[in-house]
């Protein structure tokens, strides 16, 4: 009841979907329509997983008065205010919901990732070393691509953007394809493990 039936649901649905791909029959089309209708009703409820776990983590910090619990308060208040503005004034352009998005979410999200520009510059200076022949090859390829993707490369000589295109279309393509084939097989194997009931971590811990 706790584990076996959910596993059976995955196995049965999994095999039915494999069959659906190969069998263009009315029965399989009906099965597909039925599933789509039901999953669209079930799907929206999943939002509770992300929101719920965030609330749990931060409320427990506040309750325990854990170090820096005040910041958890900031998270909860921000979550509540954003949600309320959406419900009270709607979610269209021009509403307070969008105002919060533009002036809070966009600058913070984009700036957080832009910090990486400084770290990558620092890493280029302090860690990117030609310690071996392979590392030197990597370094040269990186430099050519860096120059070839901006117009300074073309200004120096047209060979640089041409070399960049060649690197991307030939050795890079071969490398990404070789790795990608392994990844593709791995993904297929993982999907198979799920529908065969071997991979069960998505069900969570416990009995």
């Amino acid at each position: 009841m706790k584990r076996t039936i959910p596993l059976l649901i995955v196995i049965i649905l999994g095999f039915l979907f494999v069959a659906y791909v190969f069998i263009p029959h009315k029965v399989s089309a009906d099965f597909y329509d039925w599933y789509m209708k039901w999953i669209k009703v079930i799907g929206p409820f999943a939002v509770v997983l992300g929101v719920g776990s965030l609330i749990m983590v931060h409320t427990s910090k506040i309750k325990r008065k854990a170090p820096n619990w005040g910041y958890s308060m900031v998270t909860i208040v921000a979550l509540v205010i954003t949600t309320l503005t959406g419900f009270i004034w709607g979610i269209q352009e021009g509403t307070p919901f969008m105002w919060i998005f533009k002036n809070f979410n966009v600058p913070m999200g984009a700036t957080m990732f832009s910090l990486l520009a400084f770290y990558i510059a620092s890493a280029a200076y302090k860690a990117f070393r030609a310690r071996s022949v392979e590392a030197t090859v990597l370094l040269i390829a990186a430099i050519i691509v860096m120059l070839g993707r901006v117009s300074i490369g073309q200004a120096i000589t047209h060979w640089i953007p041409d070399a960049t295109e060649w690197i991307l279309n030939v050795p890079n393509l071969a490398a990404k394809r070789g790795i990608g084939l392994g990844v593709g097989l791995g993904m297929t194997a993982t999907s198979l493990k799920i529908i065969l009931g071997i991979e069960r971590s998505y069900l969570g811990g416990g009995k």
Partner: peptide, 26 residues
């Protein structure tokens, strides 16, 4: 443990990923 039921129902579509991912990526 009850929440495993909707999760299981959503995971079923992974079955379609077996042939389709194999096709597209391999």
């Amino acid at each position: 443990w009850v929440s495993r039921y909707p999760i299981a129902f959503s995971m079923g579509i992974v079955g379609m990923g077996v042939p389709m991912s194999m096709h597209a990526n391999v």
